[in-house]
Nucleic acid binder design. Structure first.
Lengths: 185, 185
DNA sequence: AATATAATGAACACTATGTTCTATTACATT
DNA sequence: AATGTAATAGAACATAGTGTTCATTATATT
């Protein structure tokens, strides 16, 4: 990839996240991003089709980083640590989310918080897929999976709004109100 | 209220819900609503400031109806049936939601599904507030309340997408995967 | 019938989006 | 260092949608 492209892309990301520190996603215009990034209008559009596409790219970047270790674990088929320390895995994810909380908060507080949540849930699917086995079979698997994913995603959303708890505490809250908590303690 | 106002308001609602049967909320323009409703442009804007305000009004209308009995129960301080048949209350709400499912589905499938979910959760808060007492006190009350509300709201969203279950079944799924299920059976 | 209020719809100003095109600049490769 | 290739700049443009204004017409209400 051309140096200039990388540089431009990074400028856009920086401008966007910087703007997110002062206003909501929906309030930010493409022109503002362009001005903040000091790039030409056509340059922006040669990188991203729309503002939503930019948001998606940023979400992908954030979550690729957050879930990097977990996905790597799956790729190498190393399930050694799985199940016995779901709590550690969750805490780990929460720490990574905390690092990016400034951006995540802003994105979530706009009306388009759904977009980020949708992305987040996609990644969570891989994390919780393996947890399904011990569940009641009378209830549809996809309901239970969706339930777990939404539980955790909404826990994070709640956390991002309240902000006064540590990752360990939040992991405790989440597992303490969950049906699969019996399997862990 | 003037007859004409009522008539216009109803035309707008009808046009909007009719359009929701063919496309997502975000794809619908004010002009389309105006054309579909056969009203003048300025008439629309004398009734609603923005398209979002219209959506909010429709959400309020739907949920006022769905939760009518439950809120009435609270108003008259009739807690006789409470707790011992949460399942019945939930099933009842699900039936009402099923009646409006055509609109709800369309609104939820757009990127702005959040708006409806936000409204829905506001009403659910009143339903679940009373259920908090028997919960573990180590976990913050507002976390648990948010947890319950999101559980149910996301259950409904899931249901609206899958559509192949009865209200009774869905109530069963919801209570079967919930921490406060022990209190009911 | 008189009065008040709502609806109409064209015209307008405005904001933001996304495209196109040419000149300019930066890069990678040799 | 020279050269071909590709990215950037930025002005100009077309488009689409929003929300307002106002004189006119239609409809309720009393």
């Amino acid at each position: 990839m051309d140096r200039r492209q990388k540089r431009t892309r990074q400028s856009i990301f920086d401008a966007f996240t910087h703007l997110l520190e002062t206003k909501n996603y929906s309030q930010i215009t493409v022109q503002e991003i362009i001005d903040e990034a000091n790039i030409g209008r056509s340059t922006f559009y040669s990188h991203f089709e729309t503002k939503d596409e930019l948001l998606k790219s940023i979400c992908a970047e954030i979550f690729d980083h957050v879930f990097a270790e977990d996905l790597k674990k799956e790729d190498t088929h190393d399930f050694s640590g799985r199940d016995k320390n779901l709590e550690a895995e969750i805490t780990h994810i929460l720490y990574h989310l905390q690092d990016n909380s400034r951006y995540i908060k802003r994105i979530l507080s706009s009306e388009n918080g759904d977009i980020l949540m949708w992305y987040f849930k996609g990644y969570l699917e891989k994390v919780f897929e393996g947890e399904l086995d011990r569940m009641d079979t009378k209830i549809p698997k996809d309901y239970v999976l969706n339930h777990m994913i939404c539980d955790f995603a909404e826990t994070v959303r709640w956390w991002m709004k309240h902000d006064q708890y540590t990752p360990e505490q939040v992991a405790g809250f989440f597992l303490g109100t969950n049906p699969f908590s019996e399997g862990i303690h």
